[in-house]
Amino acid sequence: MNEGKDVVVEGFNVLSVNGSGGTDGGLISLGIILGVLGLALLIVSLISEEGAVGFFGLLLLLIAFIAFANADDPVQYEVTVQPGHVIDAARWEIVEQRGQIYVITEREAAE
């Protein structure tokens, strides 16, 4: 968790910044390894007609899919809104609100 003192977002007092803003390489690597292993076990189960191996292969494929789905690590800002300013809903998405503290993340740009 980074302290938000060096981050400037107009209209907000940034309390902290969470997330890297990229993707988690470890989860992507885990997803690739488990996906390949799960697919291999699924193929082996089809050839040998072994149901337990096929179930384990499907389970590994499911875990690989979950790892890929959670690999995105967006930057989240914990902020308070300065007097006279509002949160621009076109630019920011409110993830959580605790009293006057908002957790926001920047929306993806529409093309």
Rank of each mutant, 00 (worst) to 15 (best):
D88V: 15
E96F: 02
G84W: 05
G35S: 05
G84C: 11
I43F: 09
G26H: 07
V79T: 07
V53Y: 02
V103E: 05
I66D: 02
F56Q: 11
A67Y: 07
A71V: 03
A40Y: 03
S45W: 00
F12W: 02
T105M: 09
F68N: 03
N2A: 14
G84L: 15
V8T: 15
E111Y: 06
V79R: 06
P83V: 04
P83K: 02
V7F: 13
R107K: 14
S16L: 01
E10T: 09
P83A: 06
I43A: 08
I33Q: 04
I28E: 02
G25H: 14
E50Q: 12
H85E: 13
D72L: 13
L15N: 08
V8Y: 13
N13F: 11
T23W: 11
V103G: 06
Q100W: 07
A71M: 03
G19C: 00
A64Y: 01
I104Y: 12
L46E: 12
R91V: 10
I28Y: 12
S20P: 04
G99T: 10
T105N: 09
V81S: 04
F68Q: 00
L34D: 02
H85D: 04
S16P: 08
M1F: 12
I63A: 13
E78N: 06
L41S: 03
L58N: 09
F55I: 03
V8F: 15
E49D: 13
I32Q: 03
G51T: 07
G22V: 04
Q82L: 15
I104A: 03
L27P: 00
G21L: 08
G57E: 08
V7P: 03
I32V: 15
G38R: 01
A69N: 05
L27Q: 15
S29N: 11
L41R: 01
V79S: 07
G22N: 11
A67K: 00
Y77F: 14
V36Q: 03
R107C: 13
S20T: 14
A71E: 03
L37I: 12
I28K: 15
V9P: 04
V9Q: 14
V14W: 06
G99M: 12
I63M: 10
G35I: 08
I32C: 05
G22Y: 15
A109E: 14
T23H: 12
E96T: 01
V17Q: 09
L15G: 06
F68K: 08
N70L: 13
V9F: 00
G19N: 06
D72R: 03
V14P: 04
T105F: 10
G19Q: 06
G4Q: 01
D6P: 00
S45M: 06
I28F: 12
G57R: 07
I43K: 01
L39W: 01
Q97A: 09
V7T: 14
A89D: 14
V81M: 09
N18M: 07
L61F: 07
F55K: 04
E50F: 11
V8S: 15
F12G: 00
G84A: 05
L15S: 03
L59Y: 08
E96D: 13
G57A: 12
L62N: 05
S45D: 03
S29P: 02
A64H: 06
N2C: 01
G31K: 08
E93R: 02
T80N: 14
F65Y: 08
E50P: 00
I32S: 07
G99A: 07
I94H: 02
E10W: 00
I94E: 07
G54T: 05
I47R: 15
F68T: 00
Y102L: 06
